[in-house]
């Protein structure tokens, strides 16, 4: 991972360690729970890495202590693991969001959610990419 520092853009890829560091930053002292409260929807196979649908949702009341503040999506094998962070409110009604992302190659996608009570929920899904995104 040391080798990634200082390389010109386009050569280095993120590593699972970079992703773990991002999750730790997001989660603080809390241990992420992987009990399935957070749902991460991705295709098993993406024929076009330039546009891969990704959806996240968390079952919650969306008020008081039982509310989702943020959901962060990371892609372990991209040049940078960051993809997007969604921020919700009481007017969200439901913690659900969907977008389209670039995946440079076959890799694991990770979603992490932070609740108002501080709980962290995590989900991971492998996506097989047959044509890469981020390419030049």
């Amino acid at each position: 991972t040391v080798a990634a520092i200082g390389l010109p853009v386009g050569l280095a890829n993120a590593t699972p360690e970079d992703t773990m560091a991002k999750i730790k930053e997001f989660a603080g002292d809390k241990e992420p729970q992987t009990g399935g409260k957070l749902t991460l929807n991705t295709p098993e196979i993406a024929e076009n890495g330039n546009s891969v649908p990704v959806g996240v949702s968390v079952e919650s009341a969306m008020e008081g202590d039982d509310m989702v503040e943020e959901i962060m999506i990371l892609a372990e094998g991209n040049p940078n693991p960051d993809v997007v962070t969604f921020k919700f409110s009481e007017l969200s009604g439901e913690a659900i969001a969907e977008t389209r992302m670039r995946l440079a190659k076959t890799q694991d996608v990770v979603a992490v959610a932070r609740m108002t009570n501080g709980d962290i929920h995590m989900a991971k899904a492998p996506v097989k990419v047959t044509i890469g995104g981020c390419g030049g």
């Binding site: 993809v83 997007v84 969200s92 977008t99 389209r100």
Partner: peptide, 20 residues
């Protein structure tokens, strides 16, 4: 609703979400 967006989001960015 807000999204902090990184370069890994596809061209012509698409977002779907819920509002009460």
């Amino acid at each position: 609703f807000e999204a902090d967006i990184e370069p890994a989001i596809s061209s012509n960015p698409y977002f779907e979400f819920a509002v009460k």
